[in-house]
C-alpha cells in the first residue's frame, strides 16, 4: 500500500512538474491542480469542523475556559452561516469585520509596537554586545530614514542612509533568504519525487 501511494505521489508530482516545461502536460497539470484545490478546500472545512468538535467537547465537559470555547464556537458558526447566506459584501459581514476582526488584530499590532519598543530600550542593559548595538543602531537609522521632518526628509538618513541600508544590506539578506528558500523547496520537491520523503504517509 505504501508503494502504491508513493507511486501515485511521484507520478502526480512528475506530471505537474512536466506541466511547467511541456505544453502537452498543461491540461493534466491543470486537472491535478484543480483536484488539489478541491482537496484543500475540503481540508479547510474538515479543520473547521474539527475545531468546532474540540471546543464543543470542552463546553460539554465544562472544563476550564469553556466559556471562551463557547464564544469561539458561537462566533465561528455565526460567521460561517452569515458568510454562506449573506455573502462577504453584506453590511453585517462588514460590521463583523470592521467591528471585531480588524480592531482586534490591529490592537495586537499596536501592543506589539509598544512591546518591541520597550524591549529595544532595555536590550543593552542585559546584553550590551555588538549585535545588540547593531540592532539598536539599525533601528534608529530606519526610524530616522522613514520619518520626515516638518521641513522635509531627515538629511542623509532619508535620502542616503535609509535607502543604503534597505536596498543594500536588507536586500542582500533577503536574497540570501530567498535563495535558501528556493533551494530548500527544490530539494524538498526532489525528495518527494524520488520517494525519499513521503509526507502523504509512510516512511
Amino acid at each position: 500500500m505504501r508503494v502504491f501511494t508513493a507511486v501515485i505521489a511521484i507520478a502526480v508530482g512528475l506530471m505537474v512538474l512536466f506541466g511547467y516545461f511541456f505544453a502537452q502536460f498543461t491540461d493534466i497539470q491543470t486537472l491535478l491542480l484543480n483536484w488539489a484545490i478541491i482537496l484543500a478546500g475540503v481540508a479547510s472545512l474538515v479543520g473547521i469542523f474539527n475545531l468546532i468538535a474540540v471546543h464543543t467537547d470542552k463546553v460539554r465537559r465544562a472544563e476550564k475556559g469553556s466559556v471562551y470555547s463557547a464564544l469561539l464556537v458561537i462566533a465561528l458558526v455565526a460567521t460561517f452561516v452569515f458568510g454562506l447566506i449573506l455573502r462577504p459584501q453584506h453590511q453585517v459581514m462588514q460590521v463583523l469585520l470592521n467591528g471585531i476582526i480588524l480592531p482586534v488584530e490591529a490592537t495586537l499590532m499596536g501592543l506589539l509596537t509598544v512591546t518591541l519598543l520597550y524591549a529595544a530600550i532595555r536590550l543593552l542593559r542585559r546584553h550590551a554586545d555588538v549585535m545588540s548595538i547593531f540592532f539598536i543602531i539599525t533601528a534608529v537609522l530606519i526610524f530616522l530614514g522613514s520619518a520626515t521632518l516638518p521641513f522635509g526628509d531627515v538629511p542623509l538618513f532619508g535620502t542616503l542612509i535609509r535607502p543604503w541600508v534597505s536596498q543594500i544590506w536588507a536586500l542582500g539578506g533577503a536574497r540570501g533568504i530567498l535563495i535558501g528558500v528556493a533551494l530548500g523547496t527544490l530539494v524538498t520537491g526532489l525528495r518527494v519525487l524520488f520517494g525519499i520523503d513521503r509526507p502523504y504517509g509512510g516512511k
Binding site: 519598543l117 529595544a120 530600550i121 532595555r122 536590550l123 543593552l124 542593559r125 550590551a128 539598536i136 533601528a139 534608529v140 526610524f143
Partner: peptide
C-alpha cells in the same frame, strides 16, 4: 526612546 533608553540602560 530606543536611542535614549538604550544608552541609559547600557
Amino acid at each position: 526612546f530606543v536611542l535614549g533608553g538604550g544608552l541609559w540602560n547600557l
